[in-house]
Amino acid sequence: MTAIYIQLVVSGLLLGGIYALVSVGLTMIFGVSRIKNFAHGDLVMVGMYLTYALTTWTQLDPYLLVPVVTVALFGFGLLLSFALIRRIQGAPQVAQIFATVGLGLVLQNAALMIFGADFRTTNSEIAGNVLRFWGISLPLSLFIAFVVSMAVIACLTVFLRTSMVGKAMRAIAQDRRAASLMSIDVKFIDMLTFGLGTACAGLAGALLVPLYPVYPTIGANLVLISFVVVILGGLGSIEGALIGGLAIGLIETLSGFFIGSEMRQMAYFLVFIAVLLFRPAGLFGQRGSETLGS
């Protein structure tokens, strides 16, 4: 019997690792550029479809294509930043919300037009395996996704701490104006951040492909989950996104088991509402930073 609980907790945490990766992208973009990207989940969807399409086309295993998809999404992020996001930087709230909502609509429906509304699944030779230990069994793909996610988050953390670009990002996150006075190229860093955030989303998408079928509106769910994670963890905080992601993964799996799978989503929305009410700055964020939402 305990095996079931271990199974639940472990798979919840593994799932949470992927949520954490998606959310890290979202929280970075918010932290540096103060942009809340309502299309972030749709970028994951783009990563998923790209992996699916490339796999179908090349007949390669999706895992071999993960780097390609990540780099492609990085480029796509730069493009989006150049074409759209930089135009809403510092714009009124309404423009920021609805420009990214509009972007989401465009991406979703472009996917619908290209791939149709059907669920698409991709098989992977590698991912077909199942890990068995402690009397529990886990799909290898979930395990891989978790390990890669954690590794990437760790690398990003080191990158932000040590590299020049990373330091510039943190400087902008602290005080935009001061950073631009210190002759940091704020616009360039904004673009780079959006590229990196999009790459995180795309990578997560590629890792999700062997696990879940993809369909055009899958992003809507993911964006809400990652906003829940980011707000739970404290806006702009990578560590917060990590812990928040794991927590939401756990909550989703446990509530799915105990309350029923339909009510899963309900559980994290309720958590979300509770966090907004009681700790709007997040569990790890500074109190008062919720006014940054203005």
């Binding site: 759209l84 714009a91 009124p92 509009g102 989401g104 429906n109 037009m113």
Partner: peptide
């Protein structure tokens, strides 16, 4: 032939509007 086209156009209009004609 092209389901989704109208929402795609909606989205584009929305973006153009909030950026250029808020």
């Amino acid at each position: 032939s092209l389901q989704g086209l109208y929402l795609l156009i909606y989205g584009t209009i929305l973006i153009v509007m909030v950026v250029f004609l808020p």
